[in-house]
Every structure is written in structure tokens, then in C-alpha cells.
């Protein structure tokens, strides 16, 4: 099994395109740093306390106005709640002396997690090609003539795709960390993250942990889009088809989600649950759905998608 994995890795990393993709990723991230800081420089981040105190004053005065029955400005309960929460958070921040993340080292790393969607595209390319290219190049015949079972070969391919994904995600984090430390220095490495959930509880955790959670949540959709690409690649043995369908799914999923939300069965749709942050923040797209339910739906999809791939790959006559 280990040797199978070595082989699959060799097929991924012995190709130029893998390194070109990595280079594109690093260049785009570097470009994003240059755009942000290359011309303007940093001056906003100097004194967060002053800014925070100012914001507290602002919030207090507008809240006072909103709650005053004589005021002309009317405010609904929801916005009121949001403002109250923000006030609570800022006060807590000043009290505990926890800097906001925006213009810190970790802030950069968090901001750069947006590049995970680019990683998804690259991973889709690798996943789509993994099985399909063996068929189109005819090498599948030699591969299946080895004593290893088809299931193991497929598993090795699947795992190698996610090793590649891990490599790319780590590359994003590392580049962001390096870029961030160039701009902000490495003083903020031990920072703490602070936020307030919708239900009014404070969350306080180490920034490294928070960053890993943020990236991890991004990776949920990565896993599914890559799995779908892998499935299509196995079913149709065409990498072009697998890449295009997977990428279309990746971009249409948010639109489709909005469209299906009006129906009862929306809670069983994969795309609705791909962003798990909604359950962490306590603001689910569909009221009454919680984390365990979402995770079970995701797990069911995961098993079914991979089951189909496995079944087809094992049963297929290779011509």
C-alpha cells in the first residue's frame, strides 16, 4: 500500500504542471501582498486601543439614540442585537487587552484562506486526471496487471489526491505566514482570537488553532468537490469532463443553495451544508438544523460518492 502511494505521488510530482500550479499560487499570493502593502504601507495598525475606544463611544451613542422613544431613527430588534453584541465584544477586548486580527500576522494568514478556492481548482485538476489519464494513456492495463487489488490502487489514488491538497493548503499557509511576517514582523505569533457568537458567548482561543479551524472548514468543500471530480473521472474516464463539471459545481453551489432553500428537502442537499461555519456561529441557513445533522448528511454523501467510484472501478472491464 505504501509503495502504491509512492507511485501515485511520483505520478503527481514528476510532472511539470504540479510545480507550475504551485508557482502560480505563490505568485498570486505575493501579488496580493504587494497590492495591499507595496504602495500604501501600514499605518492603520499602530494603535488599536484608541480605535477601539472610539468605536465603543460611537456604538454607545447610537444605541442610546435608538432606544430613546422620542428619536426619529427607528431600529428593528435584529440590528439592535448586532450593535449590542459588537459593543460587548469591544468592551471585552479592551478589558482583556486582545488586539483585533485585521492588521496582524495571523490576520494575513486568515485573509489568505480565500486562496483555498484556487487550491480547490488545482486539486480538482489532479483528482480528475488521476484515474482518467490512466485510461486515456492506456497505462491502466499495466497498472491493473500488478498483484495489488483494484481497491487498493483506487485508494492509493484517492489518498494521493488529498496528500496533494494538504501540500497545497500548507503551501498557502506557509506563504501567508512568510508574507505576513515580512509586513508585520513575527511579534504576533502568540496572539489570541476573540469573538462573540450569536447566542452571546465569548470565544477565546489561540490564533494558530483558530487559523487551522478556519482552513479546515474551507477544506470541507475541497474534499467534496475533489471527490466529485474523482467520481466523474472514474465514471466517464475523461479528465476534461471531470474538471469542468467539478468546477461548475464549485461555482454554482452557492447559487443553487439559495435556489433550493425554499423547499423542504433542501436540508438533504450537499451544497447547503458545505459551509460549516454557519453552524459554528449559530446562524444556520435553515432554521433548526444543527451541526450533528449537517455532518451526518455530509458523511452520507461522502460514503455514497466514494462507494459509486469504488464499485465502478472494481467492476469495470478494461478495454
Amino acid at each position: 500500500m505504501f509503495n502504491l502511494l509512492l507511485n501515485e505521488n511520483m505520478k503527481i510530482y514528476r510532472r511539470w504542471r504540479t510545480w507550475i500550479m504551485s508557482a502560480i499560487l505563490i505568485l498570486l499570493m505575493a501579488f496580493s501582498f504587494v497590492i495591499t502593502y507595496g504602495f500604501v504601507g501600514i499605518d492603520e495598525a499602530t494603535d488599536w486601543r484608541a480605535q477601539s475606544e472610539e468605536r465603543v463611544m460611537q456604538l454607545k451613542s447610537s444605541l442610546a439614540e435608538a432606544t430613546n422613544p422620542n428619536s426619529e431613527q427607528m431600529m428593528d430588534a435584529e440590528s439592535l442585537k448586532v450593535m449590542q453584541n459588537e459593543l460587548k465584544l469591544e468592551q471585552h477586548r479592551l478589558e482583556k487587552d486582545i488586539a483585533p486580527t485585521n492588521y496582524t500576522l495571523w490576520g494575513e494568514v486568515l485573509r489568505m484562506s480565500a486562496f483555498v478556492s484556487l487550491v480547490i481548482i488545482f486539486v480538482v485538476i489532479i483528482a480528475a486526471d488521476s484515474v482518467a489519464s490512466e485510461f486515456s494513456a492506456g497505462t491502466i492495463k499495466l497498472l491493473l496487471l500488478q498483484p495489488a487489488s483494484r481497491s487498493k490502487i483506487l485508494l492509493a489514488k484517492y489518498l494521493s489526491v488529498f496528500l496533494f491538497a494538504l501540500f497545497m493548503v500548507l503551501l498557502v499557509m506557509a506563504t501567508a505566514l512568510i508574507g505576513g511576517s515580512i509586513v508585520h514582523g513575527i511579534g504576533g505569533l502568540g496572539d489570541t482570537y476573540l469573538s462573540l457568537t450569536a447566542s452571546g458567548e465569548f470565544i477565546e482561543r489561540n490564533m494558530l488553532l483558530h487559523t487551522l479551524i478556519t482552513y479546515g472548514l474551507q477544506c470541507v468543500s475541497l474534499v467534496f468537490v475533489a471527490t466529485i471530480a474523482f467520481l466523474i473521472s472514474t465514471v466517464f474516464r475523461s479528465s476534461v469532463m471531470a474538471i469542468s463539471i467539478a468546477i461548475v459545481i464549485q461555482f454554482l453551489a452557492p447559487v443553487a443553495t439559495i435556489f433550493v432553500l425554499q423547499y423542504d428537502w433542501a436540508k438533504f442537499i450537499l451544497f447547503v451544508h458545505m459551509d460549516l461555519t454557519q453552524y459554528l456561529n449559530g446562524t444556520p441557513l435553515i432554521k433548526g438544523i444543527d451541526m450533528p445533522f449537517a455532518v451526518s448528511v455530509l458523511a452520507a454523501y461522502f460514503i455514497v460518492l466514494n462507494g459509486i467510484t469504488w464499485l465502478l472501478f472494481n467492476r469495470r472491464d478494461v478495454a
Partner: peptide, 20 residues
């Protein structure tokens, strides 16, 4: 005789040798 074209002949043989 289809082999992985982006690898050398030797690398191809290493690939298949690993599985036996």
C-alpha cells in the same frame, strides 16, 4: 506498450518494480 510518458524509462520500471 503504453507507459507514463512524462517519466523516464527507468522511472517507469521503478514504478512497476515497487508493486512486486
Amino acid at each position: 506498450p503504453e507507459m507514463y510518458k512524462y517519466m523516464t524509462g527507468y522511472q517507469n520500471l521503478v514504478h512497476f518494480a515497487r508493486l512486486i
